[in-house]
Nucleic acid binder design. Structure first.
Lengths: 383, 383
DNA sequence: GTGAAAGCGCTAACAG
DNA sequence: CTGTTAGCGCTTTCAC
């Protein structure tokens, strides 16, 4: 950090940002009888109609591309629209039509590049179909999910895209039940509900491949540092690891669920390495977790892959230049977003809720090698 | 990539996502006279009033926390609200009140972690003040900026946060001029306008520090690979580099503006290294650019910092584990978002447009060292 | 083809 | 304290 923030106004602006959290006390001394018109003087359809000397309904027809309008009418109206710089008020249209052409996206943490990419994919697809996206951020606080679902319902979104921070939260389930609009779950699985469409990732396939790879290299002690146990990806990964290991009785698997955070990644790594049977390979179950794992390994001067092998789920931007290159279980988040949007649009078109599973891929890297010949003595290990 | 996407429906869902891009042909055989109620049967305030046996205005008063309501009235109304699961229709409120409690955020590229972080900071601050955020993504296409500004205006947002992809676009300026609501520019400078508030980063300070550091190490040929010349950060960085170099006549500076992309980063690096006076230090002007630079350096087996020194602007998540540690010109994007929100809220409170400049920081790293003693012969260099 | 009229669901005077 | 009354800006019958 260098200097303090500098504040300089253009028009002697005394700009005190922290101030006025309140909506706006309205400077008007006398309360006006009309709605306070927080929005400046903007021409409405009424003005356009008057200026063109026609009825409002005609303006409406022209603007909505109704076929039964004379060329003369069309040009008169358009002229007036131009002159007044008229912009239709979608609020009124929405209220009248009962549809907002808006979908809500409840996302756990938009600062996570994975989710940002999903949001991007969804937004592009939605916009192409004429929908805008209202985005809310639960900052990974489960109780905010329900709040946001209700908030979006009050704004009468036409549908919901949900990347919930907790699948098991009762309030969330309740809020969802009260939702009359179609919804699409993104890599989440709410067993109690079948009304929602879902786009899922095949985490099991990726984990299985990774485990086979590691076992093939000679690893016998594999750990998975997973994220929150309240979401599908974590459960799927854990299940997949346990199943994969069943096929190899000689392999000992350890699982450390927790949270999708750097802190958890670091703490779990510490715990594992200090444990009775330190793993020779770690699978980091998320990009934030990866950062924590790397930090702890670096701090201990544990070398990759000489001392320990590493696989990550969901790579991070710079991962490809990391030395050694990281073995990765990846997927295409942009496509997930796009498919989620498609699933929602399909429901608007009358389709039933659907589920689609997208593949994951395992890419080997230099971060995996044979375990050290002089494996640290498994302290107190019993036969 | 492994397998093909698997599609399995729950209720024999024939889920054809790509289908039905059209809003919804409406399955109803006979066109209803009322608005098509795309939204299911939801109780309105009318129903609540009837059920409670009171006037709508009373329901409204209770729900909006008006002081003059008897306890009896309050409980009767709340009971009806509960029973009907009533959710107020914000659309109607917005139309009536002339304010939407929504702000629009025009962002060039949400998949850029820097902008995602800014969006997060803004959203949190805005939500705390009761505002929701409508986000649009210009995918770095300048012509989309204007489109999105208009789109948000039609939705009657109360204010705009703008991270434009091009400051010089006429359409954008025009759209902005037609905007009656307050706006805040994020690290952008529209010379022709003073109506907008702005939150800026002090890029010059960071660049200056970096240059001094490099010169101190002995570098005499420094290159800046910058992003789009149509946005403030690029201009500021270029100006700062040129000014900093003026103080050191022995230093030769080269600048390669272009785009905030990996491709440009790689191409510019190639060009510079193949040029007449290859730099001994490169400053990467953006996180995507950095990726391109690193890629090209790796491909050529150019070592950092042995063969070349490297500084990056705006680090990426994994940067701290990059070997060698990267010297970085950083800033706090979350705070930028929060300050932008504050500036907007201040305007709602009646304040004039204001400008606030936030600091940047330079953090040295192992990626900078003295230039190689055997500097590559400056081919065809002239005295 | 075009106009008149009736609301979408809610709030805010204004009376009582 | 509570009810009545007018709309916010637009779309959509329904007549002409």
């Amino acid at each position: 950090m260098s200097t303090e923030p500098t504040r300089r106004g253009r028009k002697a602006a005394k700009t005190s940002p922290a101030a006025s959290a309140a909506p706006a006390p309205a400077a008007a001394p006398v309360a006006p009888s009309r709605p306070p018109a927080a929005i400046a003087d903007r021409a409405g359809m009424r003005q356009v109609a008057d200026r063109a000397g026609v009825a409002m309904s005609s303006v409406s027809r022209v603007l909505s591309g109704h076929p039964d309008v004379s060329a003369a009418m069309r040009s008169r109206v358009m002229a007036a629209v131009e002159e007044l710089g008229y912009e239709p008020n979608m609020l009124a249209q929405m209220l009248r039509k009962g549809a907002t052409q808006t979908i809500g996206f409840v996302v756990g943490d938009i600062s996570n590049p994975l989710l940002a990419q999903i949001a991007l994919g969804a937004e592009v697809a939605l916009r192409a179909a004429g929908y805008a996206m209202l985005l809310t951020n639960s900052v990974n606080q489960p109780n905010l999910d329900a709040t946001h679902i209700r908030l979006l319902q009050q704004r009468r979104v036409d549908g919901l895209l949900l990347s919930l921070s907790d699948e098991t939260n009762d309030q969330t389930i309740e809020a969802l039940s009260a939702t009359p609009t179609p919804s699409v779950l993104i890599d989440r699985d709410l067993r109690t509900r079948t009304e929602e469409s879902a786009v899922l990732s095949d985490h099991a396939a990726g984990i299985t491949q990774a485990v086979e790879h590691l076992v093939g290299l000679g690893h016998r002690r594999i750990a998975l540092i997973a994220g929150s146990p309240h979401v599908r990806p974590t459960r799927e990964r854990i299940n997949a690891l346990e199943e994969a290991v069943e096929a190899h009785p000689e392999v000992h698997a350890q699982v450390r669920p927790g949270a999708f955070t750097e802190v958890h990644g670091g703490a779990a790594t510490r715990e594992l390495l200090d444990g009775r049977r330190p793993p020779t390979a770690i699978i980091a179950g998320g990009n934030q977790i990866l950062v924590g794992v790397l930090g702890e390994l670096a701090a201990r001067q544990v070398r990759i892959p000489d001392d320990i092998s590493l696989v990550t789920c969901d790579d991070v931007p710079l991962a490809k230049f990391f030395t050694p290159t990281l073995a990765t279980i990846g997927r295409d988040p942009y496509e997930m977003g796009a498919e989620a949007a498609a699933l929602l649009l399909a429901r608007f078109g009358g389709a039933e809720p659907g589920v689609i599973t997208l593949p994951t891929s395992f890419t080997g890297g230099r971060s995996c090698a044979a375990p050290p010949r002089t494996a640290p003595p498994a302290q107190g290990e019993r036969p």
